[in-house]
């Protein structure tokens, strides 16, 4: 069970949280002004990086707040978290870091040792 840093309550167990997808995808102020492609991008296009990923979580069984966090999708480590509506902190690279180690073993998901 991961430990997740709620920016309000502090570090708490994963069981209290709900994942809510990629962060910083604001709902367009005038959806009607978007063409179908742009609206489709808003609805479905996500970066899905291997590496640092800004994403939304909700401390559902805690303070109830949605917040943003940067988590490395390769190591499954949280790097930081911050209140919803605030900008991603500086120094958190937005794509997979080039020095992220290769998967130690690409057959990891199979079978028992």
């Amino acid at each position: 069970m991961l430990l997740i840093p709620c920016p309000i309550c502090g570090i708490r167990p994963e069981a209290e949280f709900t994942y809510a997808g990629e962060a910083h995808i604001a709902r367009p102020a005038e959806p009607a002004s978007l063409d179908d492609h742009a609206w489709g991008e808003f609805l479905y296009a996500r970066t899905n990086p291997k590496g640092d990923h800004a994403e939304r979580w909700r401390h559902t069984h805690g303070c109830g707040r949605f917040f943003n966090a940067v988590r490395n999708t390769h190591t499954d480590r949280f790097i930081t978290s911050y209140l919803a509506g605030t900008a991603r902190p500086h120094g958190t690279p937005s794509a997979a870091s080039p020095d992220a180690p290769a998967m130690r073993n690409d057959t990891e998901q199979w079978g028992q040792a």
Partner: peptide
């Protein structure tokens, strides 16, 4: 003592 929170 005095701490309270929603949890599971």
């Amino acid at each position: 003592v005095g701490m309270c929170t929603r949890t599971v």
